[in-house]
Write a protein that binds this DNA or RNA. Sequence first.
DNA 1: TAGTGGTCTAGACCACGCA
DNA 2: GCGTGGTCTAGACCACTAA
Lengths: 246, 246
Amino acid sequence: MRIKEKSVALSIQAKKKILEYIRENHLTPHEKLPSEARLVEMLGVSRHTVREALALLEQDRLIYKTQGKGTFVHRSPVAVEEGLEILSSITSNILKSGYRPGTVLVKIVEEVPTGEMVRVMGLKPEDTVVTFQRLRTADGEPAAYCEDSIPRHLFPGEVPQEIQGESLLDFLEQTIHVKAEYAVAQISPTITEEAMVAAGMPRNQMLLQFHQLHYDQSGRPYIFSNDYLNPEIFRFKVNRTKQGKL
Amino acid sequence: MRIKEKSVALSIQAKKKILEYIRENHLTPHEKLPSEARLVEMLGVSRHTVREALALLEQDRLIYKTQGKGTFVHRSPVAVEEGLEILSSITSNILKSGYRPGTVLVKIVEEVPTGEMVRVMGLKPEDTVVTFQRLRTADGEPAAYCEDSIPRHLFPGEVPQEIQGESLLDFLEQTIHVKAEYAVAQISPTITEEAMVAAGMPRNQMLLQFHQLHYDQSGRPYIFSNDYLNPEIFRFKVNRTKQGKL
DNA sequence: TAGTGGTCTAGACCACGCA
DNA sequence: GCGTGGTCTAGACCACTAA
């Protein structure tokens, strides 16, 4: 059961080897894994590496540890399905639900930011924002209405007149080289408004509004958005953990 | 700037010292912190401990690292406010919103589980569940309608006829010594149904339904619940991060 | 008391960003 | 080439659990 390959982190290789061990020895939920000291011998790596591998398995909820007792196989062997706590684009969510994503561009305008935009994005009084209004479709059916505002000064040249590809996140990463690291979303139930109906959304449809702010790695907010999502197409799942876990 | 106290983890102490350093030297967003090697000298601890301290600061989004460049102060110095991704009771959410929580017990019944309960909680055909129906109030006003079902066999003696305290999670921890480690929630918008109106919820109120399953540390599901929350009282925020972060 | 996971040390080499 | 963070080793002591 020795390892050592190259270019792939040892802790990752160790994680896979431990998973193999669980499978080959038919360890069932709540059964005890070999101790860390034993794994050091079995895998031929240091304890630090073993512990990193176990930490990865614990994050995936495949094992759990108890000090003084040992490490055990987790009850649910199923992979954790990602939820809203993982940042993802609407495009990928539509794909994940098994639909073909599409976009109807309503308009792209340069405009004066709202007071809230100025406040949360730390804009200067003279700053403007570029707002993208889009109707997102799943297999051609209206699935979401999206309004995204990006500070004008992030676009070095002209304001783009269209979006290459479906995902705004990807588009911004390619054109202005800003990558989303995390976002904070406020969720509330609502009903389609006139502007959305005009864009093609069904009237009197119950929707979930996502009021979001996206940040880059350094913590700079760069997308102010309001997305109105059709709950008949999107599944809204959240994995909730204790503070400090995962 | 030496440390070393006792009984508090060195990495925690190191974290505090680094925070002090940032404040005392008035480091502003995007400014560079001392290198890890330098922090080892300054704090008198090993590099491993320094890296643990920095990892804690990175989780709190107070700093960010870039390989080859260094460690930097994060743009938003504000503490991250916890959202739905953190498991918390409805009681604590009402408290956090500044209201006084209360409960009107509708009823506690032992009943035959639904097919979905049997499936997701892995019940045997002869198992029954204990269902708690409660109207939760904030400053006396109806805030949520909750239905929670727990497998009967988790209660060693009689089925409880009331709940001590406001929080079911706390009650179960004290009586049957099962602690919630994580939960998976499905969120959807809905409208008050007749049973909720009968219990005291306002008619035709838009609500957010939380369909949740709570698990203990070993991954055993033990609470099957449907909570209907009034969005005028609860704030629904989610902190979304890239896969593998935080 | 023995065995387990949790924390910490000292030292090494590697991969990346930049001048 | 040099400084940075990323990974890995070998070894130590501590805290907790159960016999």
